[in-house]
C-alpha cells in the first residue's frame, strides 16, 4: 500500500514540477508591478535566531525623525515604546526628555478650554498633519501612508513556486526589503517612458511606474554620531529596520519564545513516539 502511495505521490510531484516550470515561464511575460522585484537584504532580525540590532534601530529612528516624519505619521507607536525591551533601547529618562520636546493638545481644562502640553512617554508620535485631508492637500493629492505598520503592509508577491519554499525557509522580510528597494530605486525614466506630472519614476514602486514621493534620501542628509557610513543605502536600511520594529515590536520575544517552544515540542513528540511504540508493540497493525 505504502509503495503505491509513494508512487502516486511521486507522480503528483513530477506533475507539480512540470506545472511549476511552465507557470514560472509564463508569469515572466505578464506585466506586473513593481517592474523590478525588491533586492533581498541581510537583516539581523531574519531567521530563527533573528533579533533587532539596537544601534540600527536608533539610527533608523533618527532617519525617521529627521526625514520621514516631515510627511509620514506613526500613530500607533508611543514614545514609551522606544524604551521597551527588544526595541531601540532608549533609557526612560531619555524618552521623557524626547517626548517633552513635542506638544499635544489636551483638555478641556477647568475653564473648558483646550490647551497645549508637552508630550509624555505614554503619548504617540506626533503626526505632521492635522488629518488625512490636510495631508493630501499638502502633498499634491497623495496621502503619505501612516508608517506604524508599513513594513508589514507591503510585500511583493513572490509567486509560485517561491511561496512554497518560503513556507519551509521563512522569508518574512519582504516589507523592509521592499522599502529599501523603493528608497534607493529612484532613477530617470527610460527613453520613451513619460511619467505623470509631479511624480517620480521608480521601477520598485508596487503600484505603478512612478509615485508622488520625491526621492527622500541622499548621502549625508542625516548626521550619524557612531561613525556609520552616511550613505543613502545605509539610511534606507536603517530606517527600514526601524519600521520593521515599529510594525512588529515583539519580534525578539516571539523568536526567542518560539525556539524554546519548538525544542520542547520536538522532545515531547519524541517521547510520545516511544510511548506509542511501546503501546503498540504487542499488536500487529
Amino acid at each position: 500500500m505504502t509503495a503505491k502511495m509513494i508512487r502516486w505521490a511521486a507522480a503528483a510531484f513530477a506533475a507539480g514540477i512540470a506545472l511549476t516550470s511552465s507557470i514560472a515561464v509564463a508569469q515572466e511575460a505578464a506585466v506586473e508591478y513593481p517592474l523590478l522585484k525588491p533586492t533581498r537584504q541581510e537583516w539581523s532580525f531574519a531567521g530563527i535566531f533573528g533579533h533587532y540590532d539596537q544601534a540600527q534601530l536608533q539610527r533608523g529612528y533618527q532617519v525617521y525623525k529627521e526625514v520621514c516624519s516631515a510627511c509620514h505619521s506613526m500613530k500607533l507607536v508611543k514614545f514609551r515604546n522606544l524604551a521597551d525591551e527588544g526595541g531601540p533601547g532608549f533609557t526612560e529618562d531619555a524618552v521623557k526628555v524626547l517626548a517633552s520636546t513635542y506638544s499635544i493638545q489636551d483638555g478641556p481644562n477647568d475653564a473648558g478650554e483646550m490647551f497645549e502640553r508637552p508630550r509624555l512617554p505614554s503619548d504617540a508620535f506626533p503626526s505632521p498633519f492635522a488629518n488625512d485631508n490636510a495631508a493630501r492637500a499638502a502633498n499634491g493629492g497623495a496621502l503619505p501612508p501612516d508608517m506604524s505598520l508599513l513594513a508589514k503592509a507591503r510585500a511583493v508577491h513572490r509567486g509560485f513556486p517561491w511561496f512554497v519554499f518560503d513556507m519551509f525557509w521563512p522569508y518574512q522580510e519582504q516589507g523592509p526589503d521592499y522599502i529599501v528597494s523603493l528608497l534607493t530605486g529612484y532613477q530617470d525614466p527610460p527613453e520613451g517612458v513619460t511619467v505623470p506630472e509631479g511624480t517620480y519614476y521608480n521601477p520598485h514602486f508596487i503600484n505603478g511606474i512612478s509615485l508622488r514621493m520625491p526621492p527622500p534620501l541622499d548621502n549625508d542628509v542625516v548626521q550619524y554620531s557612531d561613525g556609520t557610513p552616511q550613505t543613502k543605502e545605509q539610511y534606507a536600511k536603517d530606517v527600514s529596520a526601524f519600521l520593521m520594529w515599529a510594525a512588529e515590536p515583539h519580534l525578539d520575544a516571539r523568536k526567542a519564545l518560539g525556539f524554546k517552544v519548538m525544542l520542547f515540542l520536538i522532545v515531547f513528540a519524541g517521547i510520545l513516539y516511544f510511548v506509542k511504540r511501546q503501546v503498540w508493540r504487542d499488536v500487529a497493525h
Binding site: 530563527i48 518560503d166 522569508y171 518574512q172 516571539r254 518560539g258 519548538m262
Partner: peptide, 8 residues
C-alpha cells in the same frame, strides 16, 4: 508558522 512566519 506562529513563531517564525506568522504573516505568511
Amino acid at each position: 508558522f506562529v513563531f517564525y512566519q506568522p504573516n505568511f
